[in-house]
Design a protein around this nucleic acid. Structure first.
Lengths: 232, 232
DNA sequence: GAATGATTCAAACGTTCGTTTTAATTGTAC
DNA sequence: GTACAATTAAAACGAACGTTTGAATCATTC
C-alpha cells in the first residue's frame, strides 16, 4: 500500500525540456517563467539552473535536442539522393521534398512532441531574441549550404539570387503553415480539415508551384525571355 | 541664444507610438519595457499610462493606427475591382495582388515606418500573446471575409478548403519574407539584392505560382482528374 | 494675473523575474 | 553503517517589471 511514486526521478532533465517546449509554444520565451516550467514539470525551481545553467541555456537545449536530429535526417536524405543520381543533377522537386518533407513528417508527429516543437521552430525563425537567432543560424549553416548548393546545380540557368529568394519564401510558407495553424485565430473555425497528415501534400504542391513559377521581370532590367520558368 | 527646445510637445502620443513600434520589432513585446520606450521617445515614464492606459493598450494602438489604414486600402481596391468587373468573376491574380500588393507597398516604404510596421505585423501573426491574437483576428475579420469570398467566386471549381489553405500559405510566405529578411540571420550575407521594391514582383510571382499549382491528391481519396490546376 | 484643466515630472508602489545559497536527501561503493 | 558525490529542497537575493501617486508645470480662459 506504499505510494508507488518514484522518489528519485533521473529523468528530471527531460521532464524540464518537455515542459519548457510546451510552455514556450504556448506563451513564448519571455512570457514563460522558470517557475511555470518547474511547476509543470513537477520539479524544484533550482533544478533548471542546476541541470542547464541558465534559462538561455535551457532554451538552446530545447532546440538542440530536436534540431540536430532533424537536420541529420535532412542531410542523410540529400546524401541518398545524390548517391542514387550518381553525379547527375537532381530534380528540384526531390531536393525540396528532402528538406521540407522531413520537417513536415516531424510536424505530423503529435505523439512525441514533434508537432509541438515544429510549431515552436516555425515561430522562432522570426524571433527577435538575438542569441536564439545566432544559435539557429549556426545549427542551420551546414544544411542550408548543402541544400542551396544542390538547388544551384539543379537549376544552373536560374540566377542564384532568385533561388535564394524562393527558398526563403518556401521556408516562410512552411513555418507559417505549421506555427500559425492553431496558434493564430485568424482562420478560426474556417478549417474543417486541419489534419497534419494532409498538410504535407497540400503544402508540397504549393511550394513546388511557387518554385516553378515564371521569374519576375523588372521594368528597370533589360527585358529578356519573358516569364521563363524557374524550375522544370 | 535661448534653447530652442520646445517645452510642450503635443506629439507625445505619436512619439511614444513610433518608439514602441521600432522597439517591438527589435526586441518583441515582452522584452520591450516601458522604460525603454519612454527613454527612446524622450518622454516621462508615466506618459504611456497617462495617454494609453496600459502597456497592452499601447500595443493595440501601435497596430490599430496602421492596420486600419492598410485594410481600408485593401477593401477599396477590391471594391474597385468588383465595380470594374460589373458582376463578372475576378481573376484570382487580381485578388491576390489587391491583398498582398497593398501590404508589400507599405512594406517598401522605409521613410514613414511602413517597413518597420510590416516587419512587426508579419511576426505577430504567430504571436503567442493571447490578446494580441484576439485583436488581430477582429481587425482582419471583415477583410478576410471579403477576399476569401471573392476567391471562392473566382474559383468555383476549387474546393473552398483548398483555397483557404493556399491563402494561408500565401500569408505565411509574405509574412516571413518581410519579417524574416533582416530579422533572421539564416541567410546572412547571402542576399546581394534585398531591395524592398523588388520584393513585390518576386513574391507576387511566387505566390501566384503556388496558387496555380496542381491540387494535391491523396491516396485515400478517389483519384479524380489528376493534377488539375487550382487557379487559371 | 488668477483660475482651471491638461499634461509632465520624480518618486515610490507591490510584484515577479532569473539566479544563488545553504541545507537536506538521495543512490552508490566501501 | 559510513563516507562521498550527485541531486533535490526551501528560502532568500537584488534587479527589473508595470503601474500609481501627488506635486509641479503647462496652455488657455476669464
Amino acid at each position: 500500500m506504499s505510494a508507488p511514486t518514484p522518489r528519485h526521478t533521473p529523468e528530471t532533465r527531460s521532464r524540464i525540456l518537455d515542459a519548457a517546449e510546451e510552455l514556450f509554444v504556448e506563451h513564448g520565451f519571455e512570457a514563460t517563467s522558470m517557475r511555470m516550467i518547474t511547476s509543470q514539470a513537477g520539479v524544484n525551481l533550482a533544478a533548471i539552473n542546476y541541470h542547464f545553467g541558465s534559462k538561455d541555456a535551457l532554451i538552446q537545449e530545447v532546440f538542440r535536442r530536436r534540431l540536430t536530429e532533424l537536420n541529420r535526417q535532412r542531410l542523410a536524405m540529400l546524401d541518398k539522393l545524390e548517391a542514387d543520381a550518381g553525379g547527375a543533377p537532381l530534380k528540384p522537386s526531390r531536393i525540396v521534398e528532402a528538406f521540407f518533407g522531413t520537417a513536415l513528417v516531424l510536424a505530423a508527429d503529435t505523439e512525441h512532441g514533434g508537432h509541438t516543437f515544429m510549431r515552436l521552430l516555425g515561430r522562432t525563425y522570426t524571433e527577435p531574441n538575438a542569441f536564439v537567432r545566432q544559435f539557429l543560424a549556426e545549427e542551420y549553416a551546414e544544411v542550408l549550404e548543402r541544400f542551396l548548393g544542390a538547388l544551384y546545380r539543379s537549376l544552373p540557368d536560374v540566377p542564384r539570387e532568385e533561388i535564394l529568394w524562393r527558398f526563403h519564401f518556401m521556408m516562410g510558407a512552411m513555418s507559417y503553415a505549421i506555427a500559425g495553424t492553431d496558434a493564430l485565430q485568424l482562420f478560426a473555425g474556417k478549417f474543417d480539415d486541419a489534419d497534419p497528415a494532409r498538410l504535407l501534400p497540400r503544402l508540397m504542391s504549393f511550394l513546388l508551384g511557387g518554385l516553378r513559377a515564371p521569374l519576375a521581370e523588372y521594368a528597370a532590367r533589360p527585358a529578356g525571355r519573358r516569364g521563363r520558368s524557374a524550375a522544370a
